[in-house]
Amino acid sequence: MSKHHISATVNGDPVEFLTSSGATLLDVLRDQLNLTGTKEGCGSGDCGACSVILDGRLVCSCLVLAPEAEGRRIETVEGLSDGVRLHPLQEQFLKHAALQCGFCTPGFLVAAKALLDANPDPSETEVRYWLAGNLCRCTGYDKIVRAVMDTAAELRQARIPA
């Protein structure tokens, strides 16, 4: 079985990998690139734990074939923080206790970032529908929705010129 040689960008860095036709982007991220922050909860695109941003679009990486990543830009949870300071979403999730077990958290953070990139001023309803593709079984979503709303407000505030 011949493999595909794929070049892509992950969190701003160039990466290359060999992959079979049937492997998913999630498999490659976790097993080859050692980016295990992206989680597998179902493998069928129903739970959102594997959410990544592909060329600016929110996707379930379990539904993306690895060869499709050729030449594309991939953002994962590991790229949210600059390594020194947490992203405001990460800060707000911690401040609001918007996680319990933390397994779904990377997917929620990536999905929420995609939301705020697209819509800096979402209503509660918009937040709830945008995040409807991400399952959380611990929190009942209350504190997650609050964390995302507060981040949006914080980022809007930061954009206002002094």
């Binding site: 179902c42 069928s44 129903d46 529908y129 593709g133 991400n134 399952l135 979503y141 209350d142 929705v145």
Partner: peptide, 13 residues
């Protein structure tokens, strides 16, 4: 599977 075993999502609540 999570598609047919329907757990609550954020927009349900």
């Amino acid at each position: 599977g999570f598609l047919d075993y329907r757990m609550p999502v954020a927009s349900d609540l």
